[in-house]
C-alpha cells in the first residue's frame, strides 16, 4: 500500500516538500513571501517589467539554493537576504549596461512644494529615483534599506553581510552623495 505523506504545515515542512520535488509546496512558499520580496524589489526596479524580472530572479535563486536552508533563521529572513543580494547584483548589472542612466523616459511634473510643505509619495519617489540613479549601487542599496525601508543598522548589516561600522560609514557617505545629487553641484 502506498504511504500517503501528510500535507506540509510549517514552512520547514514546505521547504522539505519542495526539495522532494513538490512544486505546489514551492508555489505556496512563493505565495506567502512574494508581496514582501516584490515590495523590496520595487524600490530598485523602474517599471513593472523590471520588477517582474527581479522578483523572478530572486525566487529562482531561492529555488536553486533551497537545499542550503538549514532552518536556523526564519524562512522570511533567509529570503530577505537573497532578495537584497539579487537587488544589489541587479543594480550593478544595470549600471554596467547603462553608464549614464537616463531618466528622461520618466514623466516629470515634479515641482518642489513650498519650503516645509509635504511632498506627495509619487513626487518623492520620482525625485529620489532621479537622485539615486547617479549613486553607486552600494550607496543606493544602503539608502533604500536605511531610509526608505526604515531598517536598523543591525538589520542592514545582517542583510548585506557588511559590518555595522561599514554600514554606518556607507550610510553617511550615501546620504551626502544623494544630497549633492538632488541638490545640484553647488554645495560640493
Amino acid at each position: 500500500m502506498k504511504e500517503v505523506m501528510p500535507a506540509p504545515q510549517t514552512e520547514k515542512e514546505f521547504v522539505r516538500a519542495a526539495l522532494n520535488g513538490d512544486d505546489e509546496a514551492f508555489a505556496e512558499l512563493v505565495r506567502s513571501h512574494k508581496a514582501a520580496v516584490l515590495r523590496t524589489a520595487a524600490r530598485f526596479a523602474r517599471n513593472d517589467a523590471e520588477l517582474d524580472d527581479l522578483g523572478q530572479e530572486t525566487f529562482m535563486r531561492v529555488y536553486q539554493s533551497l537545499g542550503s536552508y538549514r532552518g536556523e533563521a526564519p524562512f522570511g529572513h533567509w529570503i530577505s537576504r537573497i532578495t537584497i543580494r539579487a537587488c544589489y547584483d541587479f543594480l550593478r548589472e544595470r549600471r554596467r549596461h547603462e553608464k549614464d542612466v537616463s531618466l528622461d523616459a520618466l514623466e516629470y511634473s515634479v515641482a518642489d512644494p513650498a519650503s516645509g510643505a509635504a511632498f506627495s509619495s509619487g513626487q518623492a519617489r520620482l525625485i529620489l529615483e532621479r537622485g539615486m540613479s547617479k549613486l553607486k549601487p552600494s550607496e543606493r542599496l544602503i539608502i533604500t534599506l536605511f531610509e526608505l525601508e526604515d531598517r536598523s543598522v543591525r538589520e542592514v548589516a545582517a542583510l548585506t553581510g557588511w559590518s555595522e561600522t561599514l554600514v554606518k560609514v556607507r550610510a553617511f557617505r550615501a546620504r551626502k552623495a544623494l544630497k549633492r545629487s538632488i541638490g545640484g553641484e553647488d554645495d560640493k
Binding site: 518642489d112 518623492a124 529620489l128 531610509e147 526608505l148 526604515d150 538632488i182 541638490g183
Partner: peptide, 11 residues
C-alpha cells in the same frame, strides 16, 4: 530637511 521630507513621503 528637504531630504528628510522626501524620505518621509516615499515611506
Amino acid at each position: 530637511d528637504r531630504l528628510e521630507r522626501l524620505f518621509a513621503a516615499a515611506r
